[in-house]
């Protein structure tokens, strides 16, 4: 996709920085007034509350159901627990999680391990490669640099689907089909265009005088990269790293296409469970929640980086 996501926040910041600084007081005042005005409109708060409820209730239903015994799930809706809690009859259990994680039919514990094994290299490798490429595109002059950069940048719009079948055939020809290696390799390739583009934008924002000064002191490119640029890029790397982590963790297409069944990530296993045991809600709800725990923890713990990374990377695919 084109230059869209990044320039937007960038220029939004530009627009804001100039008039905002001297006006901080009036903005705070205005904020109070605006908040007051808004809360006094019952329609506005009503609509906001309805949206918030619609966006949370389905997840709550899943979470509550995953802790109810199988037979109870089949015979009554999850919303009835609130009544049963009041009357002291509510039953809760972690059996569903036990069965989903270690039961012979689902065995999600194995796939949970797979998801980690797939995700960590699929984050480390593309970010490292992209950092180096972004450095070259930003700070090493060479012929054809701009054309190459535009080419890499425009590869973002290529849907993964066009690459899957030929790649899979190559992997099978090499005798590595279905292994973790093919999944790491594929994820790394697919992540590169966006990663190079974003990290290049961040690198370009670093004042050239810093790089020049280091160069005058006799530092080579490797030294400049590690000593001067890398420390300044840590927030950008964190943001993109979180995005890539979630993208790989939540990915279905790549895992489904390339990984053989003992090495599939959890998304594939849970999707399969939904297909083969669609009525077993005790397994499905627990399984789905297990697959969501890691992204949710990341969300709660690293919300700031998380949102930034999500926004920067939302165009991938």
């Amino acid at each position: 996709m084109s230059s869209t996501p990044t320039p937007l926040p960038a220029h939004a910041v530009d627009d804001e920085s100039a008039p905002e600084k001297p006006r901080r007081m009036s903005r705070a005042e205005q904020r109070a007034i605006a908040a007051k005005g808004r809360l006094s409109s019952p329609w506005a708060s009503g609509i906001a509350i309805i949206i918030a409820i619609l966006w949370t209730i389905p997840s709550i239903g899943l979470l509550v159901t995953s802790f109810r015994p199988d037979t109870v799930i089949r015979n009554s809706g999850w919303w009835t627990v609130f009544g049963s809690i009041a009357s002291g009859e509510a039953e809760f259990t972690v059996d569903n999680y036990n069965q989903a994680l270690f039961g012979s039919s689902s065995d999600l514990a194995t796939f949970f391990v797979n998801s980690f094994v797939i995700t960590i290299p699929a984050v480390v490798i593309p970010i490292t490669l992209a950092l180096l490429a972004a450095y070259a595109f930003a700070w090493i002059p060479f012929r054809g640099r701009n054309i190459l950069f535009v080419a890499v940048f425009s590869l973002q719009i290529v849907p993964l689907q066009v690459a899957l079948v030929p790649l899979l055939r190559n992997y099978n020809d090499w005798g590595i089909g279905g292994s973790f290696w093919t999944v790491w390799f594929s994820h790394s390739i697919f992540a590169l265009p966006l990663a190079i583009f974003l990290l290049h934008n961040f690198m370009k924002d670093i004042p050239p005088s810093l790089v020049e000064a280091a160069r005058v002191d006799g530092a080579g490119h490797v030294k400049i990269f590690f000593r001067v640029l890398f420390p300044l890029l840590v927030p950008a790397i964190a943001s993109f790293g979180i995005f890539q982590f979630l993208w790989v963790w939540n990915d279905l297409l790549v895992g489904l296409t390339f990984a053989a069944s003992p090495y599939q990530p959890m998304t594939v296993a849970v999707a399969e469970l939904a297909g083969s045991r669609g009525g077993d809600w005790h397994l499905l709800t627990a399984g789905a929640f297990i697959s969501m725990v890691v992204p949710l923890v990341v969300f709660v713990a690293l919300q700031r980086y998380f949102v930034r990374g999500m926004l920067a990377g939302a165009v991938k695919g």
Partner: peptide
């Protein structure tokens, strides 16, 4: 807080979201 509520679905996989809603439509 209000924004976090609406943003959370963005964090989970589409597979997970599909199961959540399949249960709503059961």
């Amino acid at each position: 807080f209000a924004k976090a509520l609406v943003f959370v679905p963005m964090a989970i996989s589409m597979v997970g979201a599909s199961i959540i809603w399949k249960f709503v439509y059961e």
